[in-house]
Amino acid sequence: MSAESICSDAVRFSDERLAEIKTLVARYPSAQSALMPVLYMAQEDFGYISMDAQKMIAEVLGLRLMQVREVVTFYTMFREQPCGTYLLEVCTNAGCMLNGANELVAHMCDSLGINVGETTPDGLFTVTEVECAGACGGAPVVQVNNAYHEKVTPEFIDALITEKRAEGAE
């Protein structure tokens, strides 16, 4: 599993990552079980999971590329394309819908000037709608890069956008 043998591209796990993967694999009856955690690592390291990354992962875990492709495309949290620095995921399922989620999405899109699923031209924000986030008691729920925010108001969104834009401008 040496780094050289895997891939000469930029899409390559660091030696620390490879060591981490080795311990991870040992926790399961078979290396294939480590696929999802390893995909998360790739997404963290490279921002998204490109075809090159998928090939590299197949090699690291001793899987066929198709086995990796099947998993990457089945699960919605694995991204094959880059997204904005801040991924805003709004739950619009029942609990949140009943508490204003659709209006919140409309507000976000208006403020950012994009449609659902799009990224702002400055590459800062992507807005998506997601299925029930499992926090309906705090509806409406927005995840910002996987951190939960509950009972979210339009004001909160505005503040967030302003803050991140200011940071981005620095």
């Binding site: 926790r27 399961y28 999802m36 955690p37 995909l39 699960y75 919605t76 694995f78 997601v130």
Partner: peptide, 12 residues
Amino acid sequence: MNLTVHRGAGAY
């Protein structure tokens, strides 16, 4: 006994 947390990835 060993115990491991395994994360899903967005599939109900």
